[in-house]
Design a protein around this nucleic acid. Structure first.
Lengths: 326, 326
DNA sequence: TTGAAAGCGCTAACAA
DNA sequence: TTGTTAGCGCTTTCAA
């Protein structure tokens, strides 16, 4: 192609390089660009990678793409990374630690320039090993206990606090928290926040039962099976805005999280690190919203049935914001 | 690393190549493998690509990751491709034709070995240009009018036929079809199948109204706004199994499609093409299921209100299968 | 079975 | 401003 333009390959390379302006004559630049256009030339990324030691790709590891929380996050990641000229290599681990380890190994073998991990369990050694290692990694949604990797998530603690506050305001006294497996940081952050909020509301001695479910799902069916009605017998607050939870019966009051922004922030953080910014690992907690629907209401009698704050579902009604911090 | 093993780089390369057995002494192989392990050596994919002319990656272009139909398809794709040693480069176009064109161009520039496209509109020139071109492309879910690229989707026509049959069996006479934008093959296949099924049920002269919505969504809200109740005044059948449509009121009867298998079949088809199998572009249509729930029932009086067959939503109840073909 | 050597297509340091 | 040159790390043909 340089031949076609009548210039030396090195010159052609410079002409096509958008950085460093004025490194080449306008005339030369034009000749080269025309030749490239006519030949449909695009630089070979393998050769370029070999020379520049940059792969131009970032690995994105997710636990399960069919979990509705994930796709908006990926879209956010993709948008930011794409416009920075980086492609996303996607790996879905199906919540399997071995597949997580295999995915991370493969992504490193492929020389990804960075890693965004949404699969971390609290004790994951594979993820912990990423600490301070190359390539830089950013954790989203799920954190590890050890070490300190950059982490982006919703401010779940504030969300839970607000959910408990909402129920308390309605007059509920008996409040339980149904959450996910203890192996996830998400679970621990939420249940600790629940405990703290209950102490704040009802004093240190009050019961604040926490139940661990195997997954974050809606518990309407379990309620019905127990012969209880929502919201007549019990109020329910969900966590995470999901499609259609505004259409179930009753429409679910939930804590909504800024999924897309979790993605964009994580990508931005990674870009910073790629830019050589090695500030101590930041934790970015983004604000949540409480969306009040029909699944929560004032209890009938005083000392009525308990109200469960729960993890999993949400859309658009009456909103109040729990400010996030970073 | 070859140095560490005390052998020539060429020998090390052969030792690490799983193909062509017996190309190297067991002893040499062992030495090389130990050195590789000790050094944490993995072959540089850029150098390898440069030499072998293979990038080891496939581009996957989707219209919108938050559309619940997409993630299971991607999981299927990823599973098959991953075990074939290929990575997925993901591009989300947000249903934008320009972004689709940009994504495909970028993926080609990155020398993807194959393309899986879920974004095609019937008249997309960018996608049509992939016909017979390199790299090979497979279309999923959405087809183009011109040309003949390999295509994998659910057998929507059979699904619609069964939906109409179901409503007719219940005693419905006035049936309408609400579907998506005419720019999608999905829409045309379904509405034509609807028309044909109605002719079959009620003869050539009978009305078979088709309404085009901007997107595939649930039309309960519109129904309520019109002062109608489902299923008392009107039965509704959805298309595509979506989370929570079994939990809305009333639980939605829908045509379920084998999303994951669409992904695995598409990936398999692509692998065939990569293997040099240049058979004429196949069309794979996978079987659907009708899942009957509470949104469809026998109409109250004879000649009651119309029943709408509609596109968008579903989960697990009473199933019958519409066999797919390929 | 192993070593030697060439070259994939690019970029960057240097020279002109 | 442009040409020259070297070399990124691998695979593969050829020779030993």
């Amino acid at each position: 192609m340089a031949e076609r333009a009548g210039v030396h390959p090195g010159t052609a390379s410079r002409a096509l390089d958008p950085a460093l302006p004025g490194r080449v004559t306008g005339q030369t630049k034009e000749k080269v660009e025309r030749a490239a256009r006519e030949l449909g030339y695009t630089p070979d990324p393998a050769a370029r990678s070999l020379r520049t030691r940059r792969s131009g790709s970032v690995g994105v590891v997710v636990p399960d793409l069919t979990n509705p929380v994930i796709p908006p996050i990926i879209r956010g990641i993709e948008e930011v990374l794409w416009s920075a000229g980086l492609a996303c290599l996607l790996a879905d681990t199906d919540n399997d630690v071995e597949r997580e380890a295999a995915a991370i190994a493969e992504l490193r073998a492929r020389r990804c320039e960075g890693l965004i991990i949404a699969t971390a369990t609290r004790d994951s050694p594979t993820v912990a090993a990423l600490n301070g290692a190359d390539p830089p990694a950013v954790l989203v949604t799920r954190d590890i206990d050890a070490g300190s990797l950059p982490f982006v998530a919703a401010d779940d603690a504030a969300g839970v606090r607000r959910a408990v506050g909402h129920l308390a305001e309605l007059g509920h006294r008996h409040i339980a928290h149904v959450t996910g497996p203890p192996s996830l940081s998400t679970t621990m952050i939420r249940s600790r926040a629940f405990h703290d909020a209950m102490v704040e509301q009802q004093g240190a001695g009050a019961p604040a039962p926490v139940l661990h479910a195997e997954a974050f799902t809606i518990c309407y069916a379990a309620l019905a099976a127990a012969g209880l009605r929502c919201p007549e017998d019990m109020s329910i607050v969900g966590h995470n805005d999901m499609p259609l939870v505004d259409s179930v019966q009753p429409p679910l009051t939930t804590v909504a999280i800024p999924q897309r922004r979790i993605g964009t922030e994580a990508a931005r953080l990674l870009l910073e690190r790629l830019g050589g910014d090695a500030a101590p690992a930041p934790r970015v907690l983004l604000g949540t919203e409480l969306i009040v629907r029909a699944s929560t209401r004032r209890p009938k009698g005083p000392g009525g049935r308990p109200s469960a704050a729960q993890d999993g579902g949400e859309a658009v009604d009456s909103r109040t914001t729990s400010s996030g911090s970073s």
